[in-house]
Simulated scan of single mutants.
Amino acid sequence: MPDAQPRPEPFIQQTAPEALEDLRSRLRATRWPDTPEDAGWSLGTDLDYLRELVTYWAESFDWPAQEAALATLPRFRVPLSGPGIHFVHARATAPAGPALPLVLSHGWPDSFWRYSKVIPLLTDPGAHGADPADAFDVVVPDLPGFGYSDRPVGPPLDSISVAGLWAELMTVLGYERFGAAGGDLGSHVSRCLGLDHPERIVAVHRTDAGLPVFAGDPEDLAPEERAWIEGVGVWGATEGAYAAIQRTKPQTAAFGLNDSPAGLAAWIVEKLRAWSDCDGDIERSFTKDEILTNVTLYWLTGTIGSSMRMYRANGAIPPAQLARRVEVPSGFSLFAGDVVRPPRAWLERTTNMVRVTEPARGGHFAPFEEPELYAEELRDFFRPYRTAATA
Rank of each mutant, 00 (worst) to 15 (best):
P2M: 13
P2S: 14
Q5N: 12
R7A: 10
A16S: 01
A16R: 06
P17W: 00
P17H: 00
L23W: 02
R26Y: 00
L27A: 03
L27M: 00
R28A: 02
E37Y: 10
G40W: 07
G40T: 08
W41E: 07
G44L: 08
T45V: 13
D48K: 10
L50A: 03
R51G: 00
E52M: 06
L53M: 09
L53P: 07
V54A: 14
T55Q: 09
Y56M: 04
W57I: 04
P64H: 00
A71F: 09
T72S: 10
L73T: 09
P74S: 12
F76K: 05
V78E: 04
L80I: 10
G82W: 06
P83K: 05
P83Q: 06
H86E: 09
A92Q: 06
P95I: 04
A99T: 03
A99I: 07
L100I: 05
G107Y: 11
D110F: 13
S116R: 15
T123N: 07
H128P: 08
D134P: 00
D134L: 14
F136E: 09
G145Y: 02
G147T: 04
R151G: 00
S159Y: 11
I160C: 10
S161P: 01
V162I: 15
A167F: 01
L173V: 13
Y175V: 02
A180S: 15
G182K: 12
S190A: 15
R191K: 14
R191G: 15
H197W: 12
R206P: 02
D208W: 06
A215I: 15
L221H: 03
A227D: 04
W228H: 06
G236D: 05
I245W: 02
I245L: 15
G256A: 13
N258A: 15
S260I: 06
A262K: 05
A266S: 13
E270I: 02
L272N: 08
W275D: 02
E283K: 05
D289I: 09
I291N: 08
I291A: 10
T293L: 12
V295P: 03
T296K: 01
Y298I: 05
T303Y: 07
M308Q: 13
P318N: 11
P319A: 15
Q321W: 04
A323K: 05
L334D: 11
F335C: 10
V339Q: 15
R341N: 06
R341M: 11
P343N: 08
R344M: 01
A345D: 08
T351P: 09
V354P: 01
R355E: 14
V356H: 03
E358T: 13
L373I: 14
L378A: 08
P384M: 06
Y385S: 01
Y385R: 01
T387D: 13
A388F: 04
A389I: 07
